[in-house]
Design a protein around this nucleic acid. Structure first.
Length: 584
RNA sequence: GGGGCUGUAGCUCAGUUUGGUUAGAGUGCCGGUCUGUCACACCGGAGGCCGCGGGUUCGAGUCCCGUCAGCCCCGCCA
């Protein structure tokens, strides 16, 4: 049906007869001449219909062709007249002079435009999702999805060359007691019993290590029934990796090798080795476990100086065991109160009760914090005229996220220059445990993280201080991947599950199969999982995952195009042994 | 579960602050003229549940309450 892609036409093809098929992008009807821009995946090509070279039927068809009609054209690639060349178009030197034109399928007027007038905003996200096939016709989205394809292909090839084996793991799995909420799938054969969709293939890949597969990788779909964000979808894809007889260094090596390759595919820089930052340092210096290191701005501990000032807020925070940490912003004094207020709002949104600030003008400090300054305060804080000090007082768990938010807002407000365009980073030594909502121990990552042998003696006395052999890969402030060395000793695994509050019979019921496998000769092993959606989004220069997923869900976890989820017939539910409540 | 922003013509948006004639613009769509356009140009036309429901008022796109949807954030996401 076609002999060439629309975007492939060049001057070299002049004189050739070609058959082109695609969509009508735009029509320009000059009366005696009709121009159609024909679009397919390869690009755009101008087709011209005129009395000198087109049949009367072709002229008529061209005149009647509307946007998004599907057409097939037979014609001759012809250099355009000198004055009619279009340097803004990849195929702008030529056009195809239409001999015959057939409308293969008429399209009704598109609900959202595929061709956008310059300067015009994209249609609303709602309409873009509702009319997804039209949205996906846009070059930008096609380019993003094609880049995603190339990234996944490169990842598979990379691991294949490193001796990894791609093994598929079940989609119908066992519910896990911890972590995110599971999507459940009813079993018709066993009424009242349910499968869960995997939150990740975590346990399966460990089982594959125990089975002796050595090196495993999979492009794995994962499902989590949690509320969404711009960088989170209920179903997402991971490059899932696991290997036996390895150290964290092996993972860093593969991770950096892979990222170098993927960055190359995306035309982005990735200089190895990546920087490494212990978790505690990341929290101390940036207030975040995924700091954006493109910007050279760090949190400073000013407790010693500020805690001594005559401020009840500051003294009270210190008396309760908190600290006063802040940001020293060179040149920040030029920010207006409104701008500083916006930064404070960001800190408040992150959970801080407030943010104190001091502007240094001449050799005096002003502002809610500045008025407490003593003669030597500026010197002791090493602040200079023109500086702005932002400070948060309280326990680290409050001030860290607040200062992280304040840091990002300050960078934006001051338009701080980045020191690099691409900041790759390993954050290492994540804690094994965190404090749960009720004060009980909870797994910080998942319950299979190997505690750092150096901290083994703290397991009983200070479990929260125990670091794990766990690491995250961070790019420009986005967590792209996360992994660890796993526990391969059944007794230690049982002990850790017990520390998380699971009763012995519960451990046996939920994790018996894993423990049994561990007892059958489990090699030391570990791995990492990298988020394909985030990778593709960041490496294609976007931030929303929706732009690298063909059919994404909305923030309310709905699919607007096909209209899922949807109610099912009562008979279908009955066959599954399910009754649905009346929606109180 | 909570907070914020948005919802007006097929699409992108004004109009809402301060309630008052027939709700506008650009683009798209329909009809017409036009042989080198490429955001073609020009002439004419059609097109509205102002998200939905209730309330206040002589009168509501505009004020109040509720609700739905999209987006962003907090909680949540081992």
């Amino acid at each position: 049906m076609r002999s060439a892609g629309a975007g492939e036409a060049t001057l070299k093809m002049a004189g050739e007869e070609v058959r082109i098929a695609g969509w009508v992008h735009r029509r320009r009807d000059l009366g005696g001449l009709v121009f159609l821009d024909v679009r397919d995946r390869s690009g755009l090509l101008q087709a011209s219909a005129g009395p000198g070279w087109s049949s009367a039927a072709a002229m008529e068809a061209a005149r009647g062709a509307g946007p998004e009609d599907v057409v097939a054209i037979r014609g001759v690639v012809t250099p355009r007249p000198e004055a009619a060349r279009n340097p803004d178009m990849a195929t702008g030197e030529v056009e195809v002079q239409v001999a015959e034109l057939e409308v293969l399928n008429k399209a009704r007027t598109p609900a959202i435009p595929v061709h956008l007038p310059p300067e015009e905003e994209l249609p609303s996200e709602k309409l873009r999702l509702r009319h997804r096939v039209l949205d996906l016709r846009r070059r930008e989205l096609q380019a993003r999805l094609i880049l995603r394809h190339r990234l996944v292909l490169a990842a598979r090839n990379y691991f294949h060359k490193q001796g990894f084996v791609d093994v598929e793991t079940p989609i119908l799995t066992k519910p896990t007691p911890e972590g995110a909420r599971d999507f459940l799938v009813p079993s018709r054969v066993h009424p009242g019993e349910f499968f869960a969709l995997p939150q990740s293939p975590q346990i399966y890949k460990q089982l594959l290590m125990i089975a002796g597969f050595d090196r495993y990788m999979q492009i794995a779909r994962c499902f989590r029934d949690e509320d969404m964000r711009a960088d989170r979808q209920p179903e997402f894809t991971q490059i899932d990796v696991e290997a036996s007889f390895i150290q964290p260094e092996d993972i860093y090596g593969w991770g950096e090798g892979l990222m170098t390759r993927l960055a190359e595919v995306a035309g982005v820089e990735a200089e190895t080795p990546f920087m490494r930052l212990p978790y505690h340092d990341a929290m101390e210096r940036f207030g975040s476990d995924r700091p954006d290191l493109r910007y050279d701005l760090e949190i400073v501990d000013d407790t010693a100086v500020l805690g001594a000032l005559d401020s009840n807020i500051l003294r009270g925070a210190v008396a309760k065991g908190g600290r006063i940490r802040g940001l020293h912003l060179a040149g920040g004094a030029r920010l207006s109160r409104k701008q500083i207020g916006a930064i404070e709002q960001a800190a408040k949104a992150a959970g801080a009760p407030g943010l104190l600030w001091a502007k240094v003008q001449e050799d005096r400090a002003t502002g809610p914090l500045g008025r407490f300054f003593r003669d030597d305060t500026l010197a002791r804080l090493a602040l200079s005229p023109g500086d702005l000090l932002l400070a948060a007082a309280g326990p680290d768990r409050v001030t860290s996220p607040a200062l992280d938010a304040a840091r990002a807002a300050s960078i934006a407000a001051l338009q701080l220059p980045s020191t690099t365009e691409h900041a790759w980073l390993w954050v290492t030594g994540f804690p094994v445990f965190e404090e749960g909502a009720d004060g009980a121990l909870a797994a910080n990552h998942h319950p299979f993280v190997q505690p750092d042998p150096a901290d083994a003696h703290l397991l009983d006395s200070q479990p929260l201080a125990v670091r794990g052999l766990a690491y995250d890969l961070v790019y420009n402030g986005t967590e792209l991947g996360s992994g660890s060395i796993r526990v391969h000793d059944a007794d230690l695994q049982t002990r850790l599950l017990g520390m998380l509050g699971l009763e012995p019979d519960e451990i046996a019921a939920k994790f018996g199969f894993l423990l049994e496998a561990l007892r059958s000769g489990a090699p030391p092993h570990g791995g990492i999982a990298l988020g394909v959606d985030r990778l593709a989004a960041r490496l294609s220069g976007g931030s929303s995952l929706r732009d690298v997923i063909a059919f994404p869900k909305t923030t309310a976890a709905r699919a607007l195009f096909e209209g899922a989820p949807s109610p099912v017939a009562a008979a279908e539910l009955a066959a599954l042994g399910i009754s649905v409540g009346g929606g109180e």
